[in-house]
Design a binder for these strands. Structure first.
Length: 503
RNA sequence: GACCUCGUAGCUCAGCUGGUAGAGCAUCUGACUUUUAAUCAGAGGGUCGCGGGUUCGAAUCCCGCCGGGGUCACCA
């Protein structure tokens, strides 16, 4: 700010390269008006949406005497700077400069504004004759200079690779991305609020485990230097959450946080994903059915004002109650095969084979049923459905029915063919739990799978006495997909896992 | 990991069976001025993902690699 004279534009010095040109703009700006990056604050009085709302009744061509200060990113410059459109986190807003009468110093500053810059403007609100709420600028400040150009203004960023790698650009350029991610975070907040109101305590349990338990999945392995031992990124928080209830920290706990599974990526799988897990003492899995329906219905109503949500041109109705159908019964309905009558594993495998489902030798009856369900039924469960009576063999942490020992007191909820919730009456008999873990350790899912370790700390915790309780897990990302009509899990994760873009 | 498919200007895309790279937006110059994907005239901008091969000649055909998407495998 040493000199107030308007620096002359030298066409000869006009850089060919856009980034170089913007750097030159920054130099001119710094010279004449000070370094924009030295600015530390701008006192906004209004969000763009707030102005549009406050003056919704203003007639075309009508002017107010209301002075506002607004700030945002420059999205469009029309008529040589006469109209500038900015975007803040609420909406777009048009800024007007009367080019013919603007003081020369500001005219020069206006020339230094580029698409993508962050500007602050103070001025008077009016509605143009064409009907656009506009701020007639009395003052303009370039608060930050964009040294790289924004994506194309109309088509935005289409390249999905670029969209996920440069999410900040995607957010600026793609309204849908802003809507989707905002809806996802609003959904998470709604779930937290719902659970707080019902007396659940939100807790935190370790992400680094000495043993990856609570589910069966390949963990990410890391190493602790000082302790010189391997640590595993958690695949589920389940066992620690139960230990908090055992200790009586709260009879109702939940955690919404990341889990990590070192497995394939797909439109429905990201290596790190978010789950809700909750535990409530003194209730069984039927209470989990009710709370699952209540949470998800609450989310739908919060986001859409209704239990009915469009996904992929299908209407999904989350209004409770949802049907509860047995896994074996569903298989019977869709294939005609009744696995209840096929208690012999080899007979079950043969029946599966007959309807085109290959299974590996050595599987349990429950694993065969699970495989058939996965191939023949899952995809057809579009409307919310609780699949109940899952085989005990695939439910190592769930209580079995006393009168039906091969069936667990468990359900999985399916929507649009995806499993989005999984819950059971939690097994609290330490002797039985040890036996289940031993069985699980022996069961080989694939030839290369390592034996599953037994979590002795958890068994010991059960031996200390765990109240009967219900537990529930909900896949937050998939629920977010359903609520935002997103076909890929990457759409609802701000920064999905990507390979580095090199070479 | 396997298969299919895509990768061209900063962005969005075109480029047929091989003939030596184009448009719109953005940028620059000029005009115009109450526009809203502003408009009009002109200009600059490309190791066609990378590397190799076939060919007189490759963005185009072949092989390998890198990156993305999809399907499968994997996945409580």
């Amino acid at each position: 700010m040493t000199d107030n004279t308007v620096p002359a534009l030298s066409p000869a010095a006009a850089p060919q390269d856009e980034v170089a040109r913007r750097n030159a703009q920054l130099e001119k700006l710094t010279e004449a008006y000070g370094n924009p990056f030295d600015i530390t604050r701008f006192d906004k009085t209004h969000a763009a949406a707030a102005i549009k709302e406050e003056f919704a009744q203003l007639a075309n061509g009508e002017k107010t005497d209301t002075r506002v200060s607004v700030a945002g990113r420059v999205m469009a410059i029309r008529n040589g700077g006469m109209f500038i459109v900015i975007l803040d986190d609420s909406d777009r807003l048009q800024i007007f400069h009367d080019i013919k009468h603007v003081p020369p110093e500001r005219a020069e500053l206006l020339n230094l504004v580029d698409l993508g810059d962050i500007i602050g403007v103070t001025g008077i609100v009016r509605r143009t004759p064409r009907g656009e709420i506009t701020v007639d600028a009395e003052n303009l400040t370039i608060l930050s200079k964009a040294l790289e150009p924004p994506p194309e203004k109309f088509h935005g960023l289409k390249d999905v690779d670029a969209r996920f790698r440069h999410r900040e650009q995607d957010l600026v350029a793609t309204p849908r991305t802003r809507e989707t991610l905002r809806a996802r975070y609003k959904m998470v907040a709604a779930i937290r609020q719902f659970l707080y109101e019902r007396g659940f305590l939100e807790v935190e349990t370790p992400m680094l485990h000495t043993l990856a338990g609570g589910a069966i999945a390949k963990p990410f392995v890391t190493h602790h230097n000082a302790l010189d031992m391997p640590l595993y990124m958690r695949i589920a928080p389940e066992l620690h959450l139960k230990r908090l209830v055992i200790g009586g920290l709260s009879e109702k706990v939940f955690e919404i946080n990341r889990c990590f599974r070192n497995e394939g990526l797909s439109p429905r799988h990201n290596p790190e994903f978010t789950s809700l897990e909750l535990y409530e003492a003194y209730v069984d899995f039927t209470a989990m059915i009710e709370i699952t329906e209540a949470i998800i219905y609450h989310v739908a109503v919060t986001l859409h004002g209704s239990g009915k949500v469009m996904f992929d041109e299908k209407e999904i109705d989350f209004t409770p109650p949802w049907p509860r159908l047995g896994m074996v019964d569903l298989i019977k309905t869709h294939t005609g095969v009744d696995f209840d009558g096929l208690t012999d594993v080899e007979a079950a495998r043969a029946a599966a084979q007959k309807i085109g489902v290959q299974t590996m030798p050595g599987l349990s009856w429950g694993q065969v049923v699970e495989a058939v369900f996965g191939e023949k039924v899952e995809d057809r469960l579009i409307q919310p459905t609780h699949v109940v009576d899952l085989p005990k063999e695939i439910s190592p942490l769930a209580k079995a029915w006393p009168d039906r020992p091969h069936v667990a007191q468990r359900f999985e909820t399916y929507v649009n063919g995806w499993e989005i919730a999984n819950a059971f009456s939690e097994l609290n008999d330490p002797r039985e739990q040890r036996a289940r873990f031993m069985e699980q350790a022996e069961q080989k899912r694939g030839p290369d799978d390592p034996p599953h370790p037994i979590d002795e700390d958890f068994i010991k915790a059960l031996a200390f006495g765990m109240p009967p309780m219900g537990g529930l897990g909900v896949g937050i990302d998939r629920l977010g997909m359903l609520m935002t009509d997103s076909k890929s899990i990457r759409e609802v994760i701000a920064f999905p896992t990507m390979r580095p873009d090199e070479g």
